[in-house]
Every structure is written in C-alpha cells, then in structure tokens.
Nucleic acid binder design. Structure first.
Lengths: 313, 313
DNA sequence: CCAACTCCATGAATAAAATTCATACATTAG
DNA sequence: CTAATGTATGAATTTTATTCATGGAGTTGG
C-alpha cells in the first residue's frame, strides 16, 4: 500500500488549514501537487479520504483514521529527529533570548516550555529588550537570540524567518469604521494611535503605512502590554496597530474589530536574529524549529516564509 | 529532514537480514538502491547509521534510534492499513483453512492468532488435509484456503505465493555425511528415507531430486509429525528431507545437521491456494498478508517471491 | 443574473527522486 | 593469492513527484 509520511503530513496540513491552497502553501508545494498526491493515495487505497465540496473539507472515516495515524506518528518522528540531533551535537549550550515585540510572549512561553523538556542542559533566559538595544548585545554575546520583525543588516548576525503576519488596525466595535474592510492613511489623521513604547521608526504602522503617505495621527499614546492596548481600543480611547495573530483572542470575544491597513494590507515577517557562529548548532536549530512549530500550532492566520537568507525548514 | 517510512522499512530489513544484499531482496529492490538510499539518509541526517565493515552490520546509536522509531511506527501503519481495508470491505467472512504440510503449524498458528484479533467476525477453521484431497474441496467451497507447495493448475483456483524455502536433508550429527555441504542422489541409495505419509509424487525429494536421477532409497518409512521425524533422524534411523525453516530449531539444539540436495540445492515455494472469487476480498487479502509477515518474522532463511501469477505484496 | 473570485481537478510538461546497471573496491575464507 | 561475498559509486534510466497552464464548479456581491 505504501503509505508514506508525506501523505500524512499533507492530510494534517489540509485539516489544519482547511483548504488545499493553504495546505500547499504551508508545505511549500503547489495546490496541484497536493491534489495529485491525495488522488494517488485515494486510488491506491481504493477509497476517498475527504469530501471536497464542503468547506472546510469533511474527512471520511478512512481519512480520519489516517489523520489519527498521522497525529500519533508525526510527533514520534519529530522526537526521534530531535534525539538524533542531540546525539550528534553537544547537549549543552546557552540560549539567552530577547524579545522586542511584547505580543510574542503568547507563543514564546509555550515554545520555551516545549523546548526545555527536550534540552534540559541548555541554559535558558528570556528578557524583554524594550529599554536597550538588543542587537549590539547579541553581537557582543550577551544575548544569543533576538526576536524581531525589523531585520538590520549587521555583520555576523543572521535572521532566520519564523513566519509572516499581517499588521491590522484594531478599533472598537462601536467605532464608525467597524465593518469597513480597510482604511487609508489619511483617515487616521483625526485618531489617537496607541502603540508599544518603542521608537516610531521601528513600528510598521509608521514606517510602512503613515510615513510613506506623510500622515501623522492626531495623537500617539503608548502602552506596554497588548491586553492594555486592547482595553484602551475597546473603550474608544484610540486605535492600535497589532499583528493579526495577537488579536484573534480579542476578536473572538468581540470587544474589538480589525481592519486592513490599505487595500492590500501590510505584511511583516518575524525573525529570529542569531549569531552566524550558532547558526548550525543543534540546540539552536531545534529551538527555532520548535518555535516555528509552536507558532503554527497556536497562532491563526500566519503564513510560512520560504527562507530569507536562511535555511529552509 | 524528511525521514520517510521507506527509510525505516529499509533499516528494519537490514537489521532482520543482516546484509544489504538480503535486505534488498526482501524489499524487492537492488542492493545498489539500498546503498544509495541509506547514504542519502545519512547525508541528510549528517551522521552514520551503521558500520558496514562488520557482519552483521553494527548500528550506531543514531541507527538504533531510528530502528526504535521504525519498530513503533511500522506496526501502527500496518494496523491503520488493516482498519482501512476493514472500513472498505465487509468485516465478516469464512476462512476454512487446510494444510498439506505438517510443518506449517509452526507459522500458521501464530498467523491465525494475529489475524483473529483483527477480524473477529471471520469464521476461522483449520484442518489437516492428509487423508483427503483438499483441492476439490476448495473448488467445491468446503474449504477457502489451502496451504501447499505443489500448485496444480485448476480453473477457478489461484495460487498466491507466500515464500520460497530450501528443501534440506536432515541427518544425524553422527552421520558420516555430517559436515558435507551437499549430497548427490546416488548417495541415498543405501539410506532409509523418512517422509511424511503422503503420495511420493507430492514430495520434492522424489519429484525433483531422486526421480530425475532415477534413484530409490534403500527404504522409505513415514512419520506424521516433524518432531517425530527429527527424532528418528537424530537416532540414526534414517534421513529426512524437510524445509529448511522447519529444521532451524533442531539445528540450534545440534541434534541433527543438514545438507543441501545437490550442489545448488532444491528450492520450493509455499502457496496459498484460494478461489478466484475470494482473491480480492479484504479479509482474505489481509489473511495472506498477515501470514507472509508472520512467516518472515518467525522463520529463518526463507526468501520472498515477487509474484507468480498473483499480486505482489 | 452576471462578473469576479476562489477553490479544486486534470492533462501535459518538467523537475526531481529513486532505482538500476555496470563496475570497482573491500573484506573474508580457503 | 584467489575466489567468493558484500558494499560503494558514477552514470544511465526509470519512476515518481511536482509544476504549469487551464477549465470547471461553486460563491459572492453588485
């Protein structure tokens, strides 16, 4: 019958994304490839795996049986791979992590938890780089990994892309814009913009949306933490630009609504900045891999990045 | 990293057979294919999986880790495949089995045990066809499957090959022939040959060894059960021709030794004879597959058969 | 009801991979 | 040392997987 792991990974991606198109993107394949692949598998098993007419696709009992198999096996493979990587390289290392983006706690904490259980010998530390420049600290060796959406070319520093996300404008559900698909820069001219307390040239909403249109909002106020910003937005004290994945939980509670920035939206990429020399160390490689996996498990509507001057997945 | 099940199956075959050559045969591939495949895997994992210089090959810790993974995963896949087959076809059926070869109990009992746990709705029965002709009973429908090494072309009957084995001559360890690699037909002229109590034209030792050379042994006596035959051989009462796999346990006890029949040896194939109309039924398909697996797990020195007018594995 | 979308299927072309073939190399037993 | 057996390897080949280009089917919003 010759089921291969490839087939199982495809089925899982299909379930997780809900469409062949999105599953294909996540697997770095085309929609056509997946269609053929699943058709071949169905032909060989002599049965259908899922109903294509519905959205999301409905899996048949056979499809569900294979998904069950996949859910058992893929983590086993992952664990084995990790073990092999550990057998190859040293087990110990230091991983001092710094985040620039407050929202990142949301996925970083689970990622670190998962990582720690496999790499007990790695010395982990996590700091927030709001009051200092983390990049020089990374170069010096005070830090080992910086999470940033704002790569600056520095010799010896490598940016490994984690995922792409869309920057969204959060507004109160009572706001006059609620229901609009997107807003233009000029419309912000009478609004209060709530941001993280960092330099404005490190905020996408300025560098990629307002500044190109030469627009300034009526006022800018800052808040340290995402829940606080959402609270302010919900109570009509202003609007805030945040990554889509940081907002999904509030969207579900319907305290806020979101709009695209411009008709096509503003997309960013989150990177792990590391030193060249640690690029190949097993414990680093696995941390990044674990982070990416955790992100795709926990965050909605994020996209893969092929590889931007980094190694592919 | 993209480990695939293919790689795991190869590693298992390598461990089970002890050489790339034999593993390749079992997987219906060439030795070269396996060599390339394992090399690629090692390249991608950036480590070696086993030491080739020793025989049998010694697996590295990485290789052992992957074997562990394989031993966990392959049975899971097998179970899932079985479940899928069951989901597709009906769950019930009748399987009245008949054996012509006494030794077959050795693998058939475990095979039936394994099978029964997955197909509780199939009515199983096992009889020995020593005192009647099982083939007509199969055609009539009194039987559903006959284990035989002696396929006779009958319309409506299909022979699915299970494995190939070598017919060996068992002699006492004190016999003058002990240590010889093989014997020629003429040398049997002064020996007592112990056989199963069936017509001599259904015994390979006559049809394919003695008769072509127009030789008769000094005497022929019969015994019903393999242990009894071995007992007679061990005590010097004669020599017996039996399939190699039926003799391994006695070889280990060193009560007997074995010789090839002729310089090249006599090889036979064991078949499952079934009716054409049950050839595609899921419960039959799985019984045969389970039998083959059980044989390769339990019997030593048997070989695969590609497909003799039957479907491949 | 009709664009304009989005998603999926499909045949043909293409790329990638796995496998074989033909050998050479290595090891072991005699 | 030689024969026998097992493994490695480059090149050719075959097979498989994937992409490309396209059409059809179902949805959505004017």
């Amino acid at each position: 019958m010759m089921i291969e792991l490839r087939h199982l990974r495809t089925l899982v991606a299909l379930r997780d994304t809900g469409s062949l198109v999105d599953a294909a993107e996540r697997l770095f394949l085309t929609q056509s490839a997946l269609s053929h692949q699943l058709k071949d598998l169905e032909d060989r098993l002599e049965c259908t795996l899922f109903v294509r007419k519905t959205r999301p696709p409905r899996f048949t009992s056979t499809g569900r049986r294979l998904l069950k198999l996949a859910d058992e096996m893929i983590p086993m493979v992952r664990t084995a791979e990790r073990d092999i990587v550990r057998l190859a390289g040293g087990e110990a290392g230091r991983l001092h992590i710094c985040i620039e983006c407050h929202s990142c706690f949301q996925w970083l904490i689970p990622a670190i938890d998962r990582y720690r259980s496999h790499w007990s010998e790695v010395e982990l530390d996590l700091t927030a780089g709001f009051n200092f420049e983390p990049l020089p600290a990374l170069v010096r060796g005070d830090l080992d990994l910086v999470i940033t959406s704002d790569p600056v070319d520095v010799p010896g520093i490598r940016y490994v892309p984690l995922f792409r996300y869309e920057a969204m404008l959060a507004v109160s559900r009572d706001h006059e814009w609620a229901g609009k698909p997107y807003i233009e820069p000029l419309e912000l001219i009478h609004e209060t913009l709530i941001t993280y307390p960092v330099d404005r040239n490190r905020l996408d909403v300025f560098t990629r949306f307002l500044d190109p249109a030469d627009v300034d909002p009526a006022a800018v106020r800052t808040a340290e933490l995402t829940p606080m910003m959402v609270q302010l937005v919900a109570s009509g004290r202003g609007v805030a630009c945040l990554p889509n994945w940081a907002l999904t939980e509030y969207l579900e509670k319907q305290t806020i609504v979101v709009l695209k920035l411009g008709a096509t939206g503003i997309w960013g990429t989150l990177f792990a900045a590391i030193r060249e020399d640690q690029y190949d160390s097993p414990f680093m490689e696995d941390f990044i891999q674990t982070s990416i996996e955790t992100c795709f498990n926990n965050l909605s509507d994020i996209k893969t990045v092929d590889a931007v001057g980094g190694k592919s997945l």
